[in-house]
């Protein structure tokens, strides 16, 4: 559904993406995880036609993003990191503009708007100006706007950044619901728990290079199942173990203070790159 081969992006002297190759399957929820500045947004911008690639190739549902730009754009919806809605306009008007941009006929447009606002509980806000909506409702609106033209692929660039925990969970539920309807989802995030909870597969990206691609569980179990964080001279050092018993045995021998927990994606990222995601 999404195929990327040896993708490179260079800005002046800065090599932002280095030979990125990925394949996202149809109907998959795929997370692209990395720290700020790793190249996540640049990848999405190239795939959605906002940024030119320097070399390499990328296809969306078989359409090349540079050579068949308009056809490739029709395959996807994009939820940008910034909430880029017309705040003076109403929910209905924002959705209408998107429908017109994707050449949807009037009848289909109206029907789709009604379906989508019902889908996310925005029906009573249809004629309300966007400036009067809460942050969570604005984010939901950006998601349904991207779904207006029923895209096969949905790109979400840090969709829950800046939202509180309860709203974030509602957005996650919405994303699961969208995926169940058959949409392929490509999600960038630097929230470990978001990638762990939502994604079927995760790609780690660091300094423009994809360092690992696998299911969250497989990436985690490369380290072990249990971790002990040791406090050593104002520094935290983690040790990983296959079983809880091994970890406990190790912990009993320690004189420094420690904490005991399950291994997560952050540990997997740390051991591959030597740095934390956040």
């Amino acid at each position: 559904m999404i195929r990327i081969e040896k993708l490179n992006k260079v800005y002046g002297h800065s090599h932002v993406l280095k030979d990125v190759s990925l394949h996202v399957r149809e109907g998959e929820m795929f997370a692209y995880l990395g720290p700020n500045g790793a190249g996540k947004t640049t990848t999405i911008r190239i795939l959605t036609g906002l940024t030119r690639l320097s070399s390499g190739d990328a296809w969306l549902n078989g359409f090349h993003v540079e050579r068949e730009t308009l056809a490739a754009k029709r395959q996807c919806g994009v939820v940008f990191q910034a909430i880029n809605l017309d705040s003076e306009l109403t929910v209905f008007e924002n959705l209408t503009i998107h429908g017109l941009l994707f050449h949807m006929p009037l009848k289909e447009r109206k029907q789709r708007i009604n379906e989508l606002v019902d889908y996310v509980g925005l029906s009573d806000k249809l004629n309300v100006a966007v400036s009067r909506l809460s942050g969570g409702l604005k984010r939901r609106l950006t998601i349904i706007r991207a779904l207006m033209h029923s895209p096969r692929i949905l790109f979400l660039d840090e969709p829950t950044v800046g939202l509180d925990a309860s709203i974030r969970r509602r957005i996650w539920a919405l994303m699961k619901k969208i995926q169940k309807n058959g949409t392929t989802i490509f999600l960038t995030t630097h929230y470990i728990e978001e990638a762990e909870f939502l994604a079927e597969r995760v790609a780690f990206i660091d300094e423009g290079r994809v360092v690992a691609v696998d299911s969250p569980q497989a990436l985690i179990s490369r380290q072990g199942e249990w971790a002990i964080d040791l406090m050593m001279n104002d520094n935290i050092r983690s040790r990983y173990f296959r079983t809880k018993e091994e970890a406990k045995q190790y912990a009993e021998q320690q004189e420094d203070s420690f904490s005991f927990r399950r291994v997560n994606l952050e540990d997997a990222f740390l051991s591959l790159t030597g740095k934390k995601v956040k």
């Binding site: 036609g49 906002l50 056809a71 754009k73 996807c76 910034a82 880029n84 705040s87 998107h98």
Partner: peptide
């Protein structure tokens, strides 16, 4: 400021 131009850039319009 509002990044609304991105919405046009991502749309299949010439």
């Amino acid at each position: 400021y509002w990044h609304i131009f991105e919405e046009f850039q991502a749309a299949p319009i010439s």
